[in-house]
Nucleic acid binder design. Structure first.
Lengths: 327, 327
DNA sequence: ATTGGTTACGTAACTGATTACGTATTTGAG
DNA sequence: CTCAAATACGTAATCAGTTACGTAACCAAT
């Protein structure tokens, strides 16, 4: 095996697939002369689709064989020059170009079918000889990728790895500046800072902590990159607010980590429900809240102009406690 | 699935392999930005091979990653322009161009390694989730192809199919002309007709059959396409001669069929050995004789100028009889 | 009847690989 | 020591596909 494959291991799966495919294509090309099928192997898909004598349009062919219409168009041009197909505008619709086998093309069909049958039989034999059926393996692999594609699966790993570097800390005054900055940054990016923002961001101790609330900070490599606050309304009803993640640290699941921590804290504090206010244009945020268990609700009008949606989650302390002790 | 695949069935294995490979490559390309690896995905193989800091020549890289040196050369040129590698002539040998990562290139290595590890882990997971392990399936398939390649396997099917249309017939006078023509044709193609040829070809009954010998004709769709004669020398020693197959019908195993028939006949007639005379330049013929069991020997000088090799097979009638009754 | 949007298709430009070829350097056989 | 063969590698041409773009035809809602 090639040195690269030895070193990359199974990561090279993609290249190996393509390489085996090319090897098969190269050997298959040598089969054509054996059966007296004097066509360019790259014409095969078009030829095969027309073998029944049926005429098909360029785009129907492209659709059926999974290539671009441009590619099929070029292919048909070559096949026409070689005399195997002819094409003509169809009566009903002046755009479509019907392609049919010529007499000369039809003459090759029986040989092509013998060839196809033998090739298929060989593939089938090879598959049966293997402990792991390659055909089935491809089907299963493709199915797994439709369930959750390769990129998303790698992204999951990436987030998990990034979260290893994230620490959550309770707020103390050394984080006051970071708490304000992180929130100002995101508010200014999408909206404008309002008076109630300013009060809370400048004096979190007074407006949040002294009223029984709580603030968590997320640190990446020691640097504050996220904030989230839990605000006490009446001891039973609490509010999740001031959720902010630095732009450079987004996409690593930091919001989810902070949200989970705030929910745990709320349970400890005997909260029965938590609500929040947000804006439907902040799609990733809404998605995050939903993942945390929040559902849309209609509540009191918000003091913030930017808010057009309210969400709420009901806490069941006993179940929460069980889940906690189980984890 | 695409209509073409539905119709071709497993014959399309090659295309499916390539297509899945491309799908993976496309998704893998999206992974690079996630990890902040700002390289063109097609540079990956070169980058990966240099990741340890070791410097490699263009051709060493090409060898290791299984691409042409031209491709690597172009790739290195682009990577140099982007500042990731530098290259310089090596001291000892003025031809080779050593390629090394630059400082900027080395800076990406840790991120690249995280990315590689995560991608490999995802592939491994996907493989484990499948009933048929795709990686193993590829390995097994490749192994089977090294044992006997795809082309040869199809060729076997082809020959078997062609042989269904071949009939063997005992000589009668209606084949006299074909017997002569088929032999004249091949002799004239490679050598020149000699006097002893002419006698035997013009009067096979007199020179072969009346002396206890035998001739089989091979017919394809009713047309004579092959001849083979068994000549009696002394009742125990026989000669296989006048083996001829029409150029248009070669490569279908007709010679083998006739040879088998002649050997069977010789056993029936009580032959103890069969010899033949040929020329070493007729490689396919020599190969055929060997397949039939003939081995080289040194015998009496040949009456034919064209002959420079004699071969012989010893018959063991009892074993032959057992084999016959068993089949 | 008009007109904006969609569809079918051909041509052109691009892409990532290859093979072919030319040149400089090294190797090795006599 | 010399010169033919082999090696390293860069450039050019080619190949089989793609995307991008332009044009003509069709459709459907005014």
């Amino acid at each position: 095996m090639l040195e690269l494959y030895r070193q990359t291991g199974k990561m090279a799966l993609g290249s190996r697939l393509r390489q085996l495919g090319e090897q098969l294509a190269e050997q298959a090309a040598r089969v054509y002369p054996l059966y007296g099928v004097t066509i360019d192997p790259k014409w095969f898909p078009v030829f095969f689709m027309l073998r029944t004598g049926e005429c098909l349009s360029i785009s129907a062919l492209a659709e059926a064989i999974g290539h671009s219409h441009a590619s099929v168009s070029k292919c048909v041009k070559e096949m026409t020059a070689a005399g195997f197909v002819s094409s003509q505008k169809v009566a009903g619709d002046g755009r479509v170009n019907q392609v049919c086998l010529t007499e000369q093309g039809r003459a090759l069909v029986p040989r092509l079918e013998r060839q196809s049958a033998d090739a298929a039989a060989v593939v089938e034999e090879l598959l049966q000889l293997s402990g792991n059926n390659l055909w089935e393996a491809i089907s299963e692999f493709e199915y797994l990728l439709t369930e959750r594609d390769f990129y998303t699966r790698v992204e999951d790993k990436f987030i998990a790895r990034e979260q290893e570097n994230i620490e959550l800390r309770d707020f103390d005054d050394s984080y006051a500046e970071a708490f304000a900055t992180l929130n100002y940054d995101w508010i200014e990016q999408y909206f404008t800072v309002e008076e109630s923002d300013r009060a809370m961001l400048e004096a979190p101790r007074e407006y949040i902590l002294d009223k029984g609330g709580h603030i968590v900070m997320a640190l990446a490599n020691g640097e504050p990159v996220g904030t989230c606050a839990l605000i006490n309304h009446d001891g039973a009803r609490w509010e999740l607010a001031k959720m902010a993640v630095a732009a450079s640290a987004q996409g690593k699941g930091i919001g989810y980590l902070m949200g989970r921590a705030i929910l745990d804290k709320a349970r400890q504090l005997g909260a029965e429900s938590i609500f929040l206010e947000s804006n439907t244009s902040l799609t990733p945020a809404i998605k995050l809240y939903r993942k945390l268990g929040f559902e849309r609700m209609v509540g009191d009008p918000s003091p913030y102009a930017r808010c057009n949606i309210q969400m709420q989650v009901l806490l069941e302390p006993s179940i929460g406690a069980i889940a906690d002790s189980a984890s």
